[in-house]
Design a protein around this nucleic acid. Structure first.
Lengths: 358, 358
DNA sequence: CTGAAAGCGCTTACAG
DNA sequence: CTGAAAGCGCTTACAG
């Protein structure tokens, strides 16, 4: 870029030294007792020259960047967008910028974390989940933490004692959802889980929590699990559509399905519509996340509210605590996740109710 | 952060000078004829010490950041997410990082643009639209361009000769959509437009283009515009729901509606469901953008495909051309936007068709 | 084939 | 009350 104005030019224009300019512009003038007239000379010169401090120079000198970084699983899911927007607001309120990175596939997440080693951020929030099956990413995160980088993990448990985790009570929320279906009289309840290599039974992840709640609720109700009720697919609308398409072929047909997340459930609704299967009359649907869009489906999705906005804000707060040298008050903070009953579960009238639910 | 490894330590460990380390690590070693053994010594030392170049120092010295910035209207709209992800891919393919900023309200956009003055990016893509009614943002952009910042505008026309624009043919696509509705026999066609201060008739924006196509198509068909058919609201699902709710009170009721974008149309579908109005039988719906989600609604949205992914990629390509000193081949590139007929317009069966359309 | 030195633009002890 | 100087970590002419 052309002819940037430097502090030296401001100093010359104001007839003072670079030191004075720097002090005045950084607000330390009164403390150091710089004469008001000198201050205005500097301010005037800076304004008329259109001076803006050079980011790289300041960053190099201060050893801080004024930037935080958040890695999210997928911006294609509005749940993560809402979380990121909330986090950005919290960061900006304290004068920090938040760079949001769509981590995408594993190698992209690894690359993104490696990228952060060069000192381009003051702290990192990792909201990508699925860490048990993503060892290389976790290793990179630990590497950063070893070098003193403040870090917070969202969604899943923390992989390291120095990294506080803030996560929803996925097990509790899922159990509430399942008990709701059981309470409505359902006995053949299917589960659409996220695709992945791991064994759901033992997975120390939020998808494992969903599965365990699913199994426990069936057991509690004295229902024997039919393996055909368990389908896995990508956590996208297309994935949900495909999974539900398969599930609709099972006989006797499940009368209810607990779906990984809302985005996936939107595909489930579509698959039912295409097959002429009425929701919730023939199949009840309950999912997870509570994205706004779910309330605009017909029937509106009954879902477990995932506190993404709250997690985003808390993550930034915790990051600032860590940067200030304060140990985190809690290493594993679990936030409640409650069932939001709308229409797709059949507990309410499915249409013409005028109730979007939120 | 603690004890970062610097180039000086690598030099000491390898028994060479900082110059040699820098040259080897930046790939200029062979050209300068540095001995292979020296090269491996340096590489080994760098690896075993875990050296990563300091971003700020490199940025300051090189005068480049290796980072591009994209401002988008709202990440809450998947259209912009898809565009941003495509742009990021194009940037990363050339070794650049792309920082995506949700510009949000006007003051946030202004702040974001001012923020870029300190040399923290090598180029900027502005995909926020509505520039005619956002003067302060445009002024900040021009300021950056005055200082030599490469910039590209998406969605709307360019505010400046030095800034190439890449935009969809909104007028053409909208006209095709409207003619489609007219062709299906509709005479009472409503339009849900985006909220904003501007007069739609004269607005030099994509929302103006939609409106003009709407009016021209009615005129062409010899239909007299009823002002009650024109409703404006926020470009969100909630906004669409509210707007359609109002529209359903108009008598005689419109039999079709051309909606600002898909996200808004999702709210329109919901309003119809709540009122017990069948789509497309009682009201046909056509919108704009072609987000994947629209294909999962029931009925699947008929819409005009907005080439967001293509625009995102081209924007980055054009930015690289500008950075390389090449004048843009075209200052105002208009990309085709074609109607995608699915179910909500009534040209096809609304359900059980098994056709998601994309 | 390799090294000493300057300098990118800032901030901050240190002098006076 | 204000200025001269050092230094953050790198890259790149320039010497030899």
């Amino acid at each position: 870029l052309e002819k940037r104005v430097t502090i030296a030019e401001v100093a010359r224009a104001a007839g003072v030294s670079k030191t004075t300019v720097s002090v005045v512009l950084n607000g330390g003038a009164d403390a150091l007792g710089i004469r008001p007239e000198t201050q205005s000379q500097v301010l005037d010169a800076a304004t008329s020259l259109g001076y803006t401090p050079n980011y790289a120079a300041r960053m190099l000198r201060r050893g801080r960047t004024g930037t935080l970084t958040m890695l999210v699983q997928a911006l294609a899911n509005p749940f993560f967008v809402d979380m990121a927007v909330a986090a950005r607001g919290a960061a900006e309120a304290r004068g920090y910028e938040l760079v949001v990175v769509d981590a995408g596939p594993l190698d992209a997440e690894v690359r993104a974390l490696e990228h952060l080693r060069g000192g381009r951020t003051d702290g990192v929030v990792v909201a990508t989940g699925r860490h048990h099956s993503r060892r290389p990413a976790v290793e990179r995160l630990i590497e950063l933490v070893d070098h003193g980088m403040p870090a917070v993990v969202l969604i899943d448990k923390s992989p390291d004692d120095r990294v506080p985790a803030i996560r929803p009570d996925v097990y509790g929320g899922s159990l509430e959802a399942m008990r709701h279906l059981v309470g409505l009289g359902h006995r053949r309840i299917a589960h659409i889980a996220m695709q992945g290599a791991e064994e759901l039974e033992s997975a120390p992840s939020s998808q494992g929590d969903r599965y365990r709640a699913y199994v426990d609720a069936l057991t509690e109700a004295g229902i024997e699990l039919d393996r055909r009720w368990l389908v896995r697919g990508p956590d996208t609308s297309a994935g949900g559509r495909g999974a539900m398409h398969d599930l609709l072929g099972v006989r006797p047909r499940p009368t209810a399905v607990f779906v990984y997340n809302d985005l996936t459930a939107i595909g489930v609704l579509r698959a039912c519509a295409e097959a002429g299967v009425r929701v919730p009359d023939e199949v009840a649907v309950v999912s997870f996340d509570g994205i706004e869009l779910g309330g605009f489906m017909t029937p509106a999705l009954t879902t477990v509210e995932n506190p993404g906005v709250d997690m985003g804000r808390r993550a930034i707060q915790t990051l600032f605590d860590l940067m200030a040298g304060q140990p985190p008050s809690e290493i594993d903070r679990v936030l409640p996740a409650r069932l939001l009953v709308r229409e797709s579960c059949g507990a309410r009238a499915a249409t013409a109710a005028g109730t979007t639910g939120r």
